[in-house]
Nucleic acid binder design. Structure first.
Length: 417
RNA sequence: GGAGAGUUCGCAUAGUGGCCGAGUGCGCUCGCUUGGAAAGCGGGUAUACCUUAAUCGGUAUCGAGGGUUCGAAUCCCUCACUCUCCGCCA
Protein backbone atom coordinates (compact mmCIF):
# COMPACT_ATOMS: atom_id res chain seq x y z
CA UNK A 1 0.00 0.00 0.00
CA UNK A 2 1.16 3.51 -0.80
CA UNK A 3 1.15 6.59 1.41
CA UNK A 4 -1.80 8.83 0.63
CA UNK A 5 0.09 11.90 1.82
CA UNK A 6 2.96 11.15 -0.50
CA UNK A 7 0.53 10.63 -3.37
CA UNK A 8 -1.09 13.98 -2.79
CA UNK A 9 2.17 15.86 -2.50
CA UNK A 10 3.81 14.21 -5.50
CA UNK A 11 0.90 13.59 -7.80
CA UNK A 12 2.64 14.32 -11.10
CA UNK A 13 5.72 12.29 -10.31
CA UNK A 14 3.74 9.36 -8.92
CA UNK A 15 1.42 9.29 -11.89
CA UNK A 16 4.31 9.16 -14.33
CA UNK A 17 5.97 6.37 -12.37
CA UNK A 18 2.82 4.29 -12.01
CA UNK A 19 2.11 4.58 -15.73
CA UNK A 20 5.32 2.63 -16.32
CA UNK A 21 3.45 -0.44 -15.09
CA UNK A 22 -0.23 0.43 -15.37
CA UNK A 23 -2.75 0.99 -18.11
CA UNK A 24 -3.81 4.66 -18.00
CA UNK A 25 -7.44 3.54 -17.87
CA UNK A 26 -6.81 1.81 -14.53
CA UNK A 27 -5.12 4.75 -12.88
CA UNK A 28 -7.57 7.13 -11.26
CA UNK A 29 -5.92 9.14 -8.53
CA UNK A 30 -8.60 11.84 -8.67
CA UNK A 31 -11.24 9.44 -7.33
CA UNK A 32 -8.92 8.33 -4.57
CA UNK A 33 -8.26 11.93 -3.56
CA UNK A 34 -11.93 12.79 -3.51
CA UNK A 35 -12.68 9.73 -1.36
CA UNK A 36 -9.94 10.88 0.97
CA UNK A 37 -11.49 14.35 1.16
CA UNK A 38 -14.87 12.87 1.89
CA UNK A 39 -13.40 10.65 4.52
CA UNK A 40 -11.79 13.57 6.31
CA UNK A 41 -14.94 15.60 6.11
CA UNK A 42 -17.04 12.88 7.76
CA UNK A 43 -14.38 12.23 10.39
CA UNK A 44 -14.43 15.93 11.30
CA UNK A 45 -18.18 15.93 11.75
CA UNK A 46 -18.53 12.65 13.58
CA UNK A 47 -15.72 13.31 15.99
CA UNK A 48 -17.20 16.62 16.96
CA UNK A 49 -20.47 14.89 17.79
CA UNK A 50 -18.73 12.15 19.71
CA UNK A 51 -16.83 14.71 21.68
CA UNK A 52 -20.08 16.28 22.76
CA UNK A 53 -21.57 12.95 23.72
CA UNK A 54 -18.51 12.07 25.76
CA UNK A 55 -18.83 15.25 27.75
CA UNK A 56 -22.22 14.18 29.00
CA UNK A 57 -21.26 10.57 29.50
CA UNK A 58 -18.90 11.55 32.26
CA UNK A 59 -21.78 12.18 34.64
CA UNK A 60 -25.33 11.06 35.19
CA UNK A 61 -27.39 13.19 32.79
CA UNK A 62 -30.93 14.40 33.40
CA UNK A 63 -33.92 13.21 31.40
CA UNK A 64 -33.82 16.06 28.89
CA UNK A 65 -30.16 15.47 28.15
CA UNK A 66 -30.77 11.78 27.72
CA UNK A 67 -33.35 12.51 25.05
CA UNK A 68 -30.95 14.86 23.32
CA UNK A 69 -28.11 12.36 23.50
CA UNK A 70 -30.32 9.71 22.05
CA UNK A 71 -30.86 11.68 18.86
CA UNK A 72 -27.19 12.61 18.83
CA UNK A 73 -26.43 8.90 19.01
CA UNK A 74 -28.55 8.28 15.94
CA UNK A 75 -26.73 10.98 14.02
CA UNK A 76 -23.42 9.48 15.03
CA UNK A 77 -24.49 6.01 13.97
CA UNK A 78 -25.54 7.31 10.56
CA UNK A 79 -22.27 9.15 10.03
CA UNK A 80 -20.27 6.18 11.26
CA UNK A 81 -21.87 3.95 8.71
CA UNK A 82 -21.23 6.50 5.94
CA UNK A 83 -17.64 6.67 7.05
CA UNK A 84 -17.28 2.90 7.03
CA UNK A 85 -18.51 2.81 3.43
CA UNK A 86 -16.21 5.57 2.27
CA UNK A 87 -13.24 4.07 4.05
CA UNK A 88 -13.89 0.62 2.62
CA UNK A 89 -14.04 2.10 -0.86
CA UNK A 90 -10.95 4.19 -0.24
CA UNK A 91 -8.95 1.29 1.12
CA UNK A 92 -9.98 -1.02 -1.76
CA UNK A 93 -8.69 1.52 -4.23
CA UNK A 94 -5.51 2.15 -2.27
CA UNK A 95 -4.79 -1.58 -1.94
CA UNK A 96 -5.26 -2.00 -5.66
CA UNK A 97 -2.54 0.51 -6.49
CA UNK A 98 0.76 -1.21 -7.22
CA UNK A 99 4.06 -0.04 -5.81
CA UNK A 100 5.86 2.89 -7.42
CA UNK A 101 8.60 1.46 -9.64
CA UNK A 102 12.14 2.50 -8.79
CA UNK A 103 13.67 5.18 -11.00
CA UNK A 104 15.89 2.77 -12.92
CA UNK A 105 13.05 0.37 -13.71
CA UNK A 106 11.97 0.74 -17.32
CA UNK A 107 8.36 0.97 -18.44
CA UNK A 108 6.43 -1.78 -20.18
CA UNK A 109 6.09 -5.53 -19.87
CA UNK A 110 8.25 -8.64 -20.22
CA UNK A 111 9.50 -7.61 -23.65
CA UNK A 112 11.47 -4.80 -22.00
CA UNK A 113 13.28 -7.01 -19.49
CA UNK A 114 17.00 -6.61 -19.84
CA UNK A 115 19.75 -9.13 -19.26
CA UNK A 116 22.28 -7.54 -16.93
CA UNK A 117 24.61 -10.45 -16.16
CA UNK A 118 25.51 -13.81 -17.63
CA UNK A 119 27.38 -16.57 -15.88
CA UNK A 120 29.60 -19.05 -17.78
CA UNK A 121 29.16 -20.41 -21.27
CA UNK A 122 26.28 -22.12 -22.98
CA UNK A 123 26.95 -25.82 -22.43
CA UNK A 124 27.93 -27.70 -25.62
CA UNK A 125 27.56 -31.43 -26.14
CA UNK A 126 29.42 -33.67 -28.56
CA UNK A 127 26.54 -36.15 -28.34
CA UNK A 128 22.77 -35.73 -28.57
CA UNK A 129 21.68 -34.47 -25.16
CA UNK A 130 18.57 -35.83 -23.51
CA UNK A 131 15.93 -33.87 -21.67
CA UNK A 132 15.64 -34.11 -17.90
CA UNK A 133 12.54 -36.28 -17.95
CA UNK A 134 14.29 -38.94 -19.95
CA UNK A 135 17.46 -38.67 -17.91
CA UNK A 136 15.65 -38.80 -14.56
CA UNK A 137 13.41 -41.64 -15.58
CA UNK A 138 16.25 -43.72 -16.99
CA UNK A 139 18.37 -43.11 -13.89
CA UNK A 140 15.30 -43.95 -11.77
CA UNK A 141 15.72 -40.85 -9.61
CA UNK A 142 12.38 -39.15 -10.35
CA UNK A 143 9.14 -41.12 -10.57
CA UNK A 144 6.44 -39.24 -12.44
CA UNK A 145 4.06 -42.12 -13.06
CA UNK A 146 3.55 -43.27 -9.52
CA UNK A 147 3.23 -39.65 -8.36
CA UNK A 148 0.43 -39.20 -10.89
CA UNK A 149 -1.22 -42.35 -9.56
CA UNK A 150 -1.06 -41.12 -5.98
CA UNK A 151 -1.77 -37.42 -6.44
CA UNK A 152 -2.56 -36.62 -10.06
CA UNK A 153 -0.63 -34.83 -12.75
CA UNK A 154 1.82 -32.09 -11.88
CA UNK A 155 3.46 -34.02 -9.06
CA UNK A 156 6.60 -36.09 -8.94
CA UNK A 157 8.48 -38.30 -6.54
CA UNK A 158 12.14 -37.85 -5.72
CA UNK A 159 13.72 -41.25 -5.34
CA UNK A 160 17.08 -42.58 -4.28
CA UNK A 161 19.88 -40.38 -5.64
CA UNK A 162 17.22 -37.92 -6.83
CA UNK A 163 15.91 -37.40 -3.31
CA UNK A 164 19.45 -37.19 -1.99
CA UNK A 165 20.40 -34.64 -4.62
CA UNK A 166 17.33 -32.54 -3.83
CA UNK A 167 18.15 -32.65 -0.13
CA UNK A 168 21.79 -31.82 -0.83
CA UNK A 169 20.69 -28.71 -2.71
CA UNK A 170 18.63 -27.60 0.26
CA UNK A 171 21.50 -28.31 2.62
CA UNK A 172 23.85 -26.32 0.41
CA UNK A 173 21.46 -23.35 0.56
CA UNK A 174 20.89 -23.64 4.31
CA UNK A 175 24.61 -23.75 4.90
CA UNK A 176 25.21 -20.70 2.68
CA UNK A 177 22.53 -18.50 4.24
CA UNK A 178 23.47 -19.46 7.77
CA UNK A 179 27.05 -18.47 7.03
CA UNK A 180 25.76 -15.12 5.75
CA UNK A 181 24.00 -14.41 9.03
CA UNK A 182 20.43 -15.24 8.13
CA UNK A 183 18.17 -16.92 10.69
CA UNK A 184 16.62 -20.23 9.65
CA UNK A 185 12.83 -20.48 9.83
CA UNK A 186 10.65 -23.50 9.10
CA UNK A 187 7.15 -22.05 9.02
CA UNK A 188 3.77 -23.75 9.01
CA UNK A 189 2.86 -24.76 5.47
CA UNK A 190 -0.78 -23.73 5.87
CA UNK A 191 -1.98 -20.22 6.56
CA UNK A 192 -5.22 -18.37 7.13
CA UNK A 193 -6.89 -15.81 4.92
CA UNK A 194 -5.84 -12.81 6.97
CA UNK A 195 -2.19 -13.68 6.49
CA UNK A 196 -2.53 -14.31 2.78
CA UNK A 197 -4.23 -10.93 2.45
CA UNK A 198 -1.57 -9.13 4.44
CA UNK A 199 1.17 -10.67 2.35
CA UNK A 200 -0.57 -9.32 -0.73
CA UNK A 201 -1.41 -12.69 -2.28
CA UNK A 202 -5.12 -12.34 -1.72
CA UNK A 203 -7.39 -11.47 -3.40
CA UNK A 204 -5.25 -11.69 -6.52
CA UNK A 205 -4.11 -15.31 -6.30
CA UNK A 206 -7.16 -16.93 -4.72
CA UNK A 207 -7.62 -19.32 -7.62
CA UNK A 208 -3.97 -20.26 -7.70
CA UNK A 209 -3.95 -21.47 -4.11
CA UNK A 210 -5.03 -24.82 -2.71
CA UNK A 211 -7.69 -24.47 -0.02
CA UNK A 212 -8.50 -26.87 2.77
CA UNK A 213 -11.93 -27.46 4.25
CA UNK A 214 -10.73 -25.67 7.36
CA UNK A 215 -10.37 -22.46 5.35
CA UNK A 216 -6.62 -22.56 5.40
CA UNK A 217 -4.61 -22.35 2.22
CA UNK A 218 -1.41 -24.14 1.43
CA UNK A 219 1.62 -21.93 1.34
CA UNK A 220 2.57 -20.99 -2.25
CA UNK A 221 5.85 -19.38 -1.24
CA UNK A 222 7.29 -18.87 2.21
CA UNK A 223 7.37 -15.16 1.40
CA UNK A 224 3.74 -15.38 2.55
CA UNK A 225 4.95 -16.48 5.96
CA UNK A 226 8.06 -14.36 6.32
CA UNK A 227 6.19 -11.26 5.24
CA UNK A 228 3.76 -11.81 8.08
CA UNK A 229 6.31 -12.59 10.71
CA UNK A 230 6.51 -9.08 12.17
CA UNK A 231 2.97 -8.05 11.35
CA UNK A 232 1.53 -5.40 13.71
CA UNK A 233 4.83 -5.09 15.50
CA UNK A 234 7.04 -2.14 16.32
CA UNK A 235 10.68 -3.18 16.46
CA UNK A 236 13.59 -1.28 17.90
CA UNK A 237 16.06 0.27 15.47
CA UNK A 238 18.91 -1.61 17.10
CA UNK A 239 17.62 -5.02 16.05
CA UNK A 240 17.52 -4.14 12.36
CA UNK A 241 18.17 -5.49 9.86
CA UNK A 242 16.42 -8.81 10.43
CA UNK A 243 17.57 -11.42 7.96
CA UNK A 244 15.56 -14.62 7.70
CA UNK A 245 15.49 -17.54 5.36
CA UNK A 246 12.81 -20.16 5.30
CA UNK A 247 12.42 -23.59 3.85
CA UNK A 248 8.99 -24.64 2.73
CA UNK A 249 7.32 -26.87 0.25
CA UNK A 250 5.32 -24.58 -2.04
CA UNK A 251 1.94 -25.50 -3.42
CA UNK A 252 0.38 -23.96 -6.51
CA UNK A 253 -2.66 -24.99 -8.47
CA UNK A 254 -1.27 -23.75 -11.79
CA UNK A 255 -4.76 -24.25 -13.14
CA UNK A 256 -5.11 -24.63 -16.85
CA UNK A 257 -1.48 -24.27 -17.77
CA UNK A 258 1.27 -25.25 -19.92
CA UNK A 259 1.71 -28.97 -19.34
CA UNK A 260 2.85 -29.59 -22.90
CA UNK A 261 5.72 -27.13 -23.11
CA UNK A 262 6.67 -27.43 -19.50
CA UNK A 263 6.91 -31.12 -18.98
CA UNK A 264 8.70 -32.79 -16.16
CA UNK A 265 9.34 -30.63 -13.18
CA UNK A 266 9.56 -27.21 -14.76
CA UNK A 267 6.15 -26.32 -13.37
CA UNK A 268 4.38 -28.43 -10.77
CA UNK A 269 1.87 -28.25 -7.96
CA UNK A 270 4.49 -28.81 -5.29
CA UNK A 271 8.11 -27.83 -5.12
CA UNK A 272 10.76 -27.00 -2.57
CA UNK A 273 12.06 -23.51 -2.11
CA UNK A 274 14.26 -21.60 0.24
CA UNK A 275 13.41 -17.95 0.53
CA UNK A 276 15.52 -15.09 1.84
CA UNK A 277 13.77 -12.20 3.51
CA UNK A 278 15.00 -8.98 5.11
CA UNK A 279 13.44 -6.28 7.21
CA UNK A 280 15.65 -3.17 7.00
CA UNK A 281 15.77 0.49 7.89
CA UNK A 282 14.52 2.52 4.91
CA UNK A 283 17.92 3.95 4.06
CA UNK A 284 19.50 0.51 3.94
CA UNK A 285 17.15 -1.35 1.64
CA UNK A 286 18.91 -0.75 -1.67
CA UNK A 287 22.21 -1.92 -0.24
CA UNK A 288 20.42 -4.98 1.05
CA UNK A 289 18.91 -5.49 -2.39
CA UNK A 290 22.34 -5.58 -4.04
CA UNK A 291 23.54 -7.89 -1.31
CA UNK A 292 20.67 -10.32 -1.81
CA UNK A 293 21.12 -10.27 -5.56
CA UNK A 294 24.77 -11.07 -5.21
CA UNK A 295 24.04 -13.83 -2.70
CA UNK A 296 21.54 -15.47 -5.02
CA UNK A 297 23.99 -15.23 -7.92
CA UNK A 298 26.83 -16.72 -5.87
CA UNK A 299 24.62 -19.55 -4.79
CA UNK A 300 23.69 -20.38 -8.35
CA UNK A 301 27.16 -19.80 -9.73
CA UNK A 302 28.47 -22.15 -7.05
CA UNK A 303 26.60 -24.96 -8.74
CA UNK A 304 28.40 -24.17 -12.00
CA UNK A 305 25.20 -23.76 -13.97
CA UNK A 306 24.97 -21.41 -16.93
CA UNK A 307 22.45 -18.69 -16.11
CA UNK A 308 21.59 -15.05 -16.66
CA UNK A 309 20.24 -12.26 -14.51
CA UNK A 310 17.49 -10.05 -15.89
CA UNK A 311 16.21 -6.79 -14.62
CA UNK A 312 12.46 -6.80 -15.00
CA UNK A 313 10.49 -4.04 -16.65
CA UNK A 314 7.89 -2.35 -14.46
CA UNK A 315 4.95 -4.32 -15.80
CA UNK A 316 6.63 -7.67 -15.16
CA UNK A 317 7.39 -7.04 -11.48
CA UNK A 318 4.75 -8.20 -9.05
CA UNK A 319 2.55 -5.41 -7.82
CA UNK A 320 4.09 -5.02 -4.39
CA UNK A 321 7.62 -4.57 -5.70
CA UNK A 322 9.50 -1.42 -6.65
CA UNK A 323 12.22 -3.39 -8.41
CA UNK A 324 12.84 -7.02 -9.24
CA UNK A 325 15.65 -8.97 -10.81
CA UNK A 326 15.30 -12.59 -11.90
CA UNK A 327 17.95 -15.29 -12.04
CA UNK A 328 17.23 -17.57 -14.97
CA UNK A 329 18.93 -20.89 -15.51
CA UNK A 330 19.52 -22.42 -18.93
CA UNK A 331 17.42 -25.49 -19.72
CA UNK A 332 19.12 -27.05 -22.79
CA UNK A 333 16.19 -29.20 -23.91
CA UNK A 334 13.87 -26.19 -24.00
CA UNK A 335 16.45 -23.81 -25.39
CA UNK A 336 15.40 -21.11 -22.92
CA UNK A 337 16.24 -19.65 -19.55
CA UNK A 338 13.80 -20.39 -16.69
CA UNK A 339 13.46 -18.42 -13.48
CA UNK A 340 14.97 -20.00 -10.38
CA UNK A 341 15.12 -16.89 -8.24
CA UNK A 342 13.48 -13.54 -8.03
CA UNK A 343 14.93 -10.82 -5.83
CA UNK A 344 12.77 -7.80 -5.00
CA UNK A 345 12.59 -4.69 -2.90
CA UNK A 346 9.08 -3.72 -1.83
CA UNK A 347 10.31 -0.62 0.03
CA UNK A 348 7.65 0.19 2.65
CA UNK A 349 4.77 -1.16 0.56
CA UNK A 350 4.35 -4.47 2.42
CA UNK A 351 5.08 -2.86 5.78
CA UNK A 352 2.29 -0.35 5.35
CA UNK A 353 -0.05 -3.17 4.57
CA UNK A 354 1.05 -5.20 7.57
CA UNK A 355 1.74 -2.32 10.00
CA UNK A 356 5.36 -3.38 10.44
CA UNK A 357 7.32 -0.50 11.95
CA UNK A 358 10.36 0.37 13.98
CA UNK A 359 11.21 3.05 16.48
CA UNK A 360 13.79 5.43 15.04
CA UNK A 361 15.97 6.43 17.95
CA UNK A 362 17.40 9.53 16.29
CA UNK A 363 14.11 11.09 15.29
CA UNK A 364 12.05 9.50 18.05
CA UNK A 365 9.49 8.62 15.40
CA UNK A 366 7.88 5.35 14.51
CA UNK A 367 8.60 4.55 10.86
CA UNK A 368 7.80 1.81 8.42
CA UNK A 369 10.57 -0.65 7.68
CA UNK A 370 11.46 -1.86 4.21
CA UNK A 371 11.11 -5.48 3.17
CA UNK A 372 13.03 -7.46 0.60
CA UNK A 373 12.63 -10.99 -0.55
CA UNK A 374 14.56 -13.28 -2.81
CA UNK A 375 14.50 -16.95 -3.60
CA UNK A 376 17.63 -18.64 -2.57
CA UNK A 377 16.73 -20.82 -4.41
CA UNK A 378 13.79 -22.81 -5.81
CA UNK A 379 14.89 -26.33 -6.62
CA UNK A 380 12.28 -27.49 -9.10
CA UNK A 381 14.10 -26.00 -12.07
CA UNK A 382 17.56 -26.51 -10.71
CA UNK A 383 17.36 -30.25 -10.71
CA UNK A 384 16.39 -30.34 -14.41
CA UNK A 385 19.12 -27.81 -15.17
CA UNK A 386 21.70 -29.91 -13.32
CA UNK A 387 20.61 -33.11 -15.05
CA UNK A 388 20.60 -31.53 -18.48
CA UNK A 389 23.65 -29.28 -18.24
CA UNK A 390 25.84 -31.87 -16.55
CA UNK A 391 24.78 -34.98 -18.40
CA UNK A 392 27.36 -37.20 -20.06
CA UNK A 393 27.20 -39.30 -23.21
CA UNK A 394 26.39 -42.49 -21.27
CA UNK A 395 23.34 -40.93 -19.58
CA UNK A 396 25.08 -40.37 -16.27
CA UNK A 397 25.14 -36.98 -14.56
CA UNK A 398 28.04 -35.23 -12.82
CA UNK A 399 27.12 -33.88 -9.39
CA UNK A 400 28.19 -30.26 -8.78
CA UNK A 401 31.23 -30.14 -6.57
CA UNK A 402 29.58 -28.05 -3.82
CA UNK A 403 26.85 -30.64 -3.27
CA UNK A 404 29.08 -33.67 -2.83
CA UNK A 405 29.81 -33.12 0.82
CA UNK A 406 26.09 -33.36 1.48
CA UNK A 407 25.83 -36.72 -0.27
CA UNK A 408 26.72 -40.22 0.96
CA UNK A 409 30.34 -41.10 0.11
CA UNK A 410 30.76 -37.73 -1.60
CA UNK A 411 28.78 -39.07 -4.54
CA UNK A 412 30.20 -37.39 -7.64
CA UNK A 413 28.35 -39.03 -10.53
CA UNK A 414 24.81 -40.34 -10.71
CA UNK A 415 24.85 -43.28 -13.09
CA UNK A 416 22.76 -46.24 -14.12
CA UNK A 417 22.68 -49.04 -11.62
C1' G B 1 -15.03 -33.94 19.46
C1' G B 2 -16.82 -32.77 24.88
C1' A B 3 -16.38 -29.87 29.67
C1' G B 4 -14.23 -25.87 32.24
C1' A B 5 -10.86 -21.44 33.04
C1' G B 6 -8.67 -17.37 30.74
C1' U B 7 -7.08 -12.99 27.05
C1' U B 8 -6.54 -5.31 30.42
C1' C B 9 -0.95 -0.04 28.88
C1' G B 10 6.79 -3.77 27.66
C1' C B 11 5.91 -7.54 32.03
C1' A B 12 2.81 -8.65 36.46
C1' U B 13 -1.72 -7.23 38.32
C1' A B 14 -6.42 -3.87 39.92
C1' G B 15 -10.78 -2.74 37.89
C1' U B 16 -18.73 -5.90 37.46
C1' G B 17 -22.34 0.27 33.68
C1' G B 18 -20.73 7.13 34.11
C1' C B 19 -15.44 10.01 38.65
C1' C B 20 -11.49 4.42 33.62
C1' G B 21 -7.43 5.47 28.08
C1' A B 22 -7.52 2.93 32.52
C1' G B 23 -4.88 2.49 39.30
C1' U B 24 -0.57 -0.10 41.48
C1' G B 25 4.18 -2.72 41.21
C1' C B 26 8.28 -3.93 38.03
C1' G B 27 10.94 -2.41 33.81
C1' C B 28 12.62 1.66 30.80
C1' U B 29 13.79 6.92 30.68
C1' C B 30 14.76 12.13 32.28
C1' G B 31 16.02 15.11 36.53
C1' C B 32 17.41 15.87 41.76
C1' U B 33 20.84 13.66 45.15
C1' U B 34 26.38 11.63 44.98
C1' G B 35 33.39 12.02 44.29
C1' G B 36 30.84 8.00 41.58
C1' A B 37 27.08 4.42 42.20
C1' A B 38 23.04 2.06 44.88
C1' A B 39 19.00 3.50 47.64
C1' G B 40 15.68 7.52 47.95
C1' C B 41 12.73 11.54 45.85
C1' G B 42 10.18 13.96 41.59
C1' G B 43 8.65 13.79 36.31
C1' G B 44 7.87 10.99 31.86
C1' U B 45 6.79 6.28 29.52
C1' A B 46 1.01 2.93 23.79
C1' U B 47 -0.88 3.09 18.73
C1' A B 48 -3.71 5.06 14.72
C1' C B 49 -6.48 8.85 12.66
C1' C B 50 -8.46 14.11 12.49
C1' U B 51 -6.86 19.12 13.42
C1' U B 52 -2.26 22.24 13.61
C1' A B 53 3.48 25.41 10.91
C1' A B 54 4.33 22.76 15.37
C1' U B 55 2.45 22.40 20.20
C1' C B 56 -2.35 22.20 22.29
C1' G B 57 -6.70 19.75 21.35
C1' G B 58 -10.21 15.92 19.54
C1' U B 59 -11.67 10.70 18.23
C1' A B 60 -10.91 5.48 18.49
C1' U B 61 -8.58 1.22 20.61
C1' C B 62 -8.93 -3.15 27.48
C1' G B 63 -8.10 -10.56 22.04
C1' A B 64 -11.52 -9.61 17.20
C1' G B 65 -16.39 -8.52 15.36
C1' G B 66 -21.48 -7.48 16.40
C1' G B 67 -25.51 -6.12 20.00
C1' U B 68 -28.04 -3.75 24.47
C1' U B 69 -27.65 1.44 26.60
C1' C B 70 -28.16 8.46 26.81
C1' G B 71 -23.29 6.09 28.25
C1' A B 72 -19.59 -0.43 27.91
C1' A B 73 -12.92 -2.79 29.98
C1' U B 74 -17.48 -3.91 32.86
C1' C B 75 -23.92 -6.78 30.41
C1' C B 76 -25.41 -10.15 25.90
C1' C B 77 -24.04 -12.91 21.19
C1' U B 78 -20.46 -14.86 17.59
C1' C B 79 -15.44 -15.92 16.46
C1' A B 80 -10.03 -16.48 17.35
C1' C B 81 -6.22 -17.82 20.58
C1' U B 82 -4.09 -19.82 25.42
C1' C B 83 -4.42 -23.21 29.60
C1' U B 84 -6.64 -27.68 32.35
C1' C B 85 -9.38 -32.28 32.24
C1' C B 86 -11.89 -36.19 29.21
C1' G B 87 -12.39 -38.62 24.42
C1' C B 88 -10.14 -39.82 19.64
C1' C B 89 -5.56 -40.70 17.22
C1' A B 90 -2.61 -42.18 10.79
Amino acid sequence: MLDIKYLRENEVKVKAALLKRMDPADLDLATIFSLDDKRKEIIGKVEELKSERNKFSKTKPDAATITRMKSLGEEIAALDSDLANVEADFSDKMLALPNIPADDVVAGGKENNKVVYTFSELPKFDFTPKDHVELATTLDIIDYERAAKMSGSGFWIYKGAGALLEWALLNYFIDFHTTNGYTFIIPPFLLNEASATASGHLPKFRDDLFWTEDKLCLNATSEMMLGNYHRDEILSAAELPHKYFAYSACFRREAGSYRKEERGMIRGHQFNKIEMFQYTRPEESWTAFDQMRSQAEKLLAGLGLHFQTSQLAAGDCSAAMAKTIDLEVWIPSMGIYKEVSSVSNSLDYQCRRGAMRFKNKETGKTEFMHTLNGSGLATSRLLPAILEQFQQADGSVVVPEVLRRFLPNNLSVISLK
